[in-house]
Design a binder for these strands. Sequence first.
RNA 1: GGAGAGAUGCCGGAGUGGUUGAACGGACACGUCUUGAAAACGUGCAGGGCUAAAACCCUCGCGGGUUCGAAUCCCGCUCUCUCCGCCA
Length: 429
Amino acid sequence: MISIDLIRRDPDTVRRSLSRRQEETAVVGELLHLDEQRRATIATADTLRAQRNEASKTIGALMKAGQGNQAEQQKEAVRQTGEQLRLLDETLRGLDEQTNSLMLNLPNIVSDEVPDGPDETGNIVIFEEGVRSIYDFELKPHWELSESLGITDFERGAKVSGRMFYVLGDTGARLQRALVNYMIDLHRGQHGYEERGVPFLVLKETMIGSSNLPKFADALYHDSDEDLWLIPTAEVPLTNLHRDEILEPNMLPLRYMAHTPCFRKERAAAGQQVRGLKRVHQFEKVEMYQFVEPELSMETLDAIVQAAADVIRGLKLPFHLLQLCAGDISFPSAKSFDLEIYTPASDEWLEVSSCSNCTDFQSRRSNIKFRREVGGKTEFVHTLNGSGLALPRVIIAILETFQQADGSVRVPEILVPYMGGQQVLHPIR
RNA sequence: GGAGAGAUGCCGGAGUGGUUGAACGGACACGUCUUGAAAACGUGCAGGGCUAAAACCCUCGCGGGUUCGAAUCCCGCUCUCUCCGCCA
């Protein structure tokens, strides 16, 4: 949520941000109007309430003094005030509801550091790193390799859970565990993150706090019986770890990571796009998350990007860093970067990480504040998230990049210890 | 799932209709004292709205109701604890 104060003070900044996101700006005027009505109503109601409180005190005093008659007269007057108040409160509730619903659907303000652009075509490659191998044999696509090596079993995945689900075979499950442990060890040892094991089903309030609800309900799996929602990313529970808290001085920065499954409906997906492990309803991911002081959030974003890039560097995969343009940036983000690995057989760049500075957008929704010093005033923290990394796509990149002429795949050196010394994955069918 | 108890500020804990937004204790911060610290003493210490700042208003798990007036009474919900049942 952005601050209503900002809309009041500087509506043009909000309009400009919305336009850069290719969204309608009329909502700003609506909010301005609602806010005016709201505040006028509050002012009137507060005055009435003050009168009532005062009169009630007088009545109390009169009763004590045994002047019942005068008290009764006063009561009648105050009863009328109470009736007026009831009406005003009802009006106010309506205004609050309207305001809230508009506010919850308003995206974060795009940072000035973000380039203009209509959609993903406007994203900018910041740098490319690593060497693309040259192959003297015909490359196999990942969906063939993963089946022949016993990484995946799509047929049984579909049997058990339907389209866009998969089963990992013995080698695949082991490779995934190896990758998870490698990533978590790296982030703990080199980047200062501590681990959390979080719930995968969360309350509606939790989804609102991270800004997945109300706007993106159709992307989420939901148990209507108990009104619990399956997380689409660990960002959701990690954001809410400190919901409704005031963090004491010296607690920041907080660096968390969590390894979780991610559940996504991916309704729009179809055709070539969903071949193999690339786009699935359930996948695992190691997520990094930070709570920081506002003035440090932009440099922290760079650090998160580097931490994610370090994972790829360790695997010796070629990748590039993409800065997302204003038209492609996600709802809660002020500034985002994606990391994409090059996959030689598919000949495309595959997004394995998205890192965002959500500034105070999520902390306002989740009411997460901090104090700079004991007894100091409270401020909203800034929150940042970054994948570090999404597993199926890393597996895809490993398979396509390190495949050999005989159909086997080399295990990246850094993973060998995590694979019990295994250096090559051999076809099993 | 059944039975019972409870939910108050950073923590413990009082408060059952009227200067109680909240006694008292602890923690914490500042000050006095001290070479320094401890102890002792003094002061401060919930969040939020509206303000230039006050005044004022809201909040005692959440929502609704009764009343001139609710932390206190009534109804619903959520959560926690204890016992029983079930269960990896």
